[in-house]
């Protein structure tokens, strides 16, 4: 199409102007959204450093006139946060290890070994994918408290949530995609099945394993309902449940509650800041079922 040079010039100009306006609008929108995302964190931090008299003040102030570090000391003495941390760490690490290890073994069997009943068993796993945790929660609670006598123990916090069909499904999808020739070649060289799993399949599945690890660790670290149901004393409480119990005791001491929230969030947010790409990739990969 023949366009007059002048008209073409004008078109390019208006387009550039429109692009410019568009990108400014974009930045404004993103900034407004960021404010909405960050504001709760800032408000939490601000409140956690205020003296009680400055909390209930109108208009509210963002920067306390006197920084009350004592709030943190009071919070730490009011509740055994060190113990909550320890519990959360023990539970999340063991639960993630069990989850990933058991799922990697099972997924390998489903994806790369042939045995009788493989497909029906895999279907059984798949069938439970849609059943919400709340259905199995009550029998699990009875199993824990009545049958196994695990109520208020680490085992109760760790085991019932470590065997999700989802993680097996996720890894199986990944393992199926690796070429079968790898196994066959290794077998001809005399490698055992365990060795193939450990030295060929697992090293090739780094991204999937990392994704599942991050996904389960985060899920376990932030898990609330199950630890709420199976713990009763501060010795066994994880951070979310401990924080919730704290709320029950100090429901208007906002400076302390916010200090507690900050204490609960700092480690996760610090790790997240360092490895944000890993987090986002991990969540994306496992969120999309490994596709």
């Amino acid at each position: 199409m023949a366009v007059e040079p002048l008209a073409g010039e004008q078109m390019r100009l208006t387009r550039r102007v429109r692009r410019r306006i568009g990108s400014i609008a974009l930045q404004v929108g993103l900034l407004a959204g960021s404010f909405f995302m960050v504001m709760p964190f800032l408000w939490m931090l601000s409140t956690s450093l205020k003296l009680p008299k400055e909390i209930f003040k109108y208009p509210p102030i963002w920067i306390p006139t006197e920084i009350a570090w004592s709030n943190y000391k009071d919070t730490l003495t009011a509740l055994p946060f060190d113990r909550f941390y320890l519990n959360s760490a023990i539970v999340s690490v063991s639960s993630t290890l069990i989850q990933v290890l058991a799922a990697a073994l099972a997924a390998f069997a489903f994806a790369r070994l042939r045995f009788k009943g493989r497909n029906p068993l895999f279907l059984l796993y798949l069938a439970t994918l849609m059943i919400p945790f709340q259905v199995t929660m009550i029998p699990n609670f009875i199993l824990i408290s009545r049958v196994l006598d695990w109520y208020n123990t680490y085992q109760a916090l760790i085991f019932p949530t470590s065997f999700s069909a989802f993680s097996v499904f996720l890894l199986r999808q990944f393992f199926v995609g690796l070429p079968m020739e790898l196994d066959e070649a290794a077998r001809m060289d005399g490698a055992s099945t365990l060795r193939i799993w450990w030295q060929i399949i697992l090293p090739l599945s780094g991204p999937a394993l990392a994704a599942l690890s991050i996904f389960s660790f985060l899920g376990s670290w932030n898990s609330f309902l199950w630890p709420l149901v199976v713990t009763t004393s501060n010795e066994m409480r994880t951070i979310p449940v401990g924080l919730s119990a704290f709320q029950g005791e100090h429901n208007t001491a906002w400076n302390l509650l916010m200090a507690g929230s900050v204490i609960a969030l700092v480690p996760v947010l610090a790790v997240y800041m360092v490895g944000q790409n890993w987090f986002q990739r991990g969540i994306t990969l496992s969120g999309m079922g490994g596709r």
Binding site: S34, L218, P240, S261
Partner: peptide, 12 residues
């Protein structure tokens, strides 16, 4: 920033 709340403990 937008992803920060995803890793945040919901109780906090």
């Amino acid at each position: 920033i937008y992803f920060m709340p995803v890793v945040t403990t919901i109780v906090a």
